[in-house]
């Protein structure tokens, strides 16, 4: 725990710095902040969360099994490159699952936890750990099963939808106004060159949060005052499958990532 306290202090100090910085390239700035944090705290928050996730992964559930008994898509206990191939359809559940929802399937169906016992913070920590085994791997999601195709099509539609009292939608900014700025950061080209799918899960140094893509998508909606889809819901999975497929072939620079 003293490690975490030290880290918190470092993160808080950085937040002050981060807020004072504007108008610099966000990627370069993130690299700088990361280096700074590494020098002051000696360890990165991402590494710390990965360690927590590893402990949780190897913790025995009520059934006596660890998460090594679970199949994340490439076979029981195989983590190497598994996250880069999600979301995908799983025959055992008959559903398309992303990293988050597959971790919940593992905890409930294999480890014997009750759904109500599954803590979001634990899901995210395990997601960080599993994702860390896909650094350097290319994104490879497929549209093979009918449910994968149906969700992809829905995700594409949701991405281009205009809805709510503010007529908003993802594409209206992330396609039409890429590189333009409303607020602090320019809009990322999420389908194209920015390969945004590969940026999550990530640690956000600007407010010391750990997020998966599920949290990121919900925040996108929240920022533009649109009602947010519930965690683990189909619209989130649909958008994820659409984004991941659009970024197919992109190599994961580092998972978990370190972002603003």
């Amino acid at each position: 725990m003293p490690l975490k306290a030290l880290l918190m202090a470092g993160a808080l100090a950085l937040m002050g710095l981060a807020l004072a910085q504007e108008g610099v390239d966000p990627r370069e700035e993130a690299k700088r902040q990361k280096q700074l944090l590494l020098e002051t705290a000696g360890i990165l928050p991402t590494e710390l969360i990965v360690e927590q996730g590893k402990d949780l992964f190897n913790r025995k559930g009520p059934s006596g099994k660890t998460m090594a008994e679970c199949d994340f898509g490439l076979g029981k206990g195989v983590l190497e490159g598994a996250a880069a191939r999600l979301p995908r359809y799983f025959l055992d559940t008959g559903k398309v699952e992303d990293l988050d929802s597959r971790i919940i399937t593992c905890m409930t169906r294999v480890q014997g936890f009750k759904p109500a016992q599954v803590k979001r913070s634990e899901v995210v920590a395990v997601a960080f750990y599993i994702a860390s085994h896909s650094t350097g791997k290319p994104i490879q999601v497929r549209l093979l099963f009918p449910e994968e195709r149906a969700l992809y099509a829905l995700g594409e539609k949701l991405f281009y939808a205009r809805s709510g009292a503010r007529d908003v939608g993802c594409a209206t900014c992330h396609v039409t106004y890429v590189g333009k700025r409303a607020g602090v950061l320019p809009y990322a080209d999420v389908l194209g060159k920015d390969k945004s799918w590969t940026h999550w899960p990530a640690y956000r140094y600007s407010n010391d949060q750990i997020w998966t893509m599920q949290d990121r998508i919900r925040a996108c909606y929240g920022n533009i005052a649109h009602p947010q889809p519930d965690l683990y819901s189909l619209p989130i999975l649909a958008l994820e499958l659409f984004l991941a497929y659009s970024n197919n072939g992109a190599v994961v620079e580092e998972w978990p990532a370190f972002v603003r």
Binding site: A150, P227, Q228, P229, D230, S233, L234, P235, A238
Partner: peptide, 12 residues
Amino acid sequence: RVKSGGKAYAEV
């Protein structure tokens, strides 16, 4: 499918 996102989200 969108309805699994919750009432407020589905409504729009």
